[in-house]
Design a protein around this nucleic acid. Structure first.
Lengths: 116, 116
DNA sequence: CAGCATCCCATACGATACTG
DNA sequence: CAGTATCGTATGGGATGCTG
């Protein structure tokens, strides 16, 4: 359908296309704490099916925000981490987190904050 | 459906629920430059139908990120601007914009940046 | 001018089961 | 362990036309 040819676009839009979506924010936030295995992500990200998690991870990898490292072992081990480009987003996500925390406090919404 | 009762959630997720979506980024970016009328927004935000624009604006208003001011005139005039809470987002939308600009440069993607 | 209503379609998302 | 495959639902979004 070559909508790709209409590629002139707003940078903010471009950014949101990469970090938007239902789970990418949480995934990046999780990865900002360091390298993590697939199964461990699953335990942190409750209510995310493997299908959706994998899909989001593949998109993030395709856009070069994260790195995927496969260890040729049995049982298999796959580790995810932020790429250089993705790491540049950390300050942004941290600020966003702080902003939301204040809002949630003010609105008295119980926040679930993943422990270290 | 009372999914609202499951309101304990991750702050980053909470934030993305408010500023995510296909057009909210561009809208906030536009509003960060100052108060603007509905019709003028439409001219800036190409390829956004009135339905979707209005829907996004209503959600932003409900979440108190923007202010909507109606002037009782004929013809009608409606102005949108950032709220106090929404204004706090400006620094990191700017960061996001800068991040994306670098990426687009590197990937040689022609960026459309709205003029002042 | 600033929208709302209606209809319709695409895709995002979800549940479950299975595999190298 | 780290995913696929398959199917079904729900939401997001577009086109068009109408209104105070």
């Amino acid at each position: 359908m070559e909508k790709e040819s209409l590629s002139a676009q707003c940078p903010v839009d471009y950014a949101f296309q990469r970090i938007g979506g239902k789970y990418k924010g949480r995934i990046l936030w999780l990865l900002s704490r360091g390298t993590i295995r697939y199964g461990e992500m699953r335990r942190y990200l409750v209510n995310v099916s493997p299908k959706m998690l994998t899909q989001a991870l593949r998109e993030l990898e395709r856009d070069e925000l994260i790195c995927r490292k496969v260890y040729q072992e049995v049982p298999p081990r796959v580790e995810y981490s932020l790429s250089a480009s993705g790491s540049l987003l950390v300050p942004f996500i941290t600020q966003l987190n702080d902003w939301a925390c204040e809002l949630m406090d003010k609105n008295q919404i119980p926040a679930f904050r993943p422990r270290k």
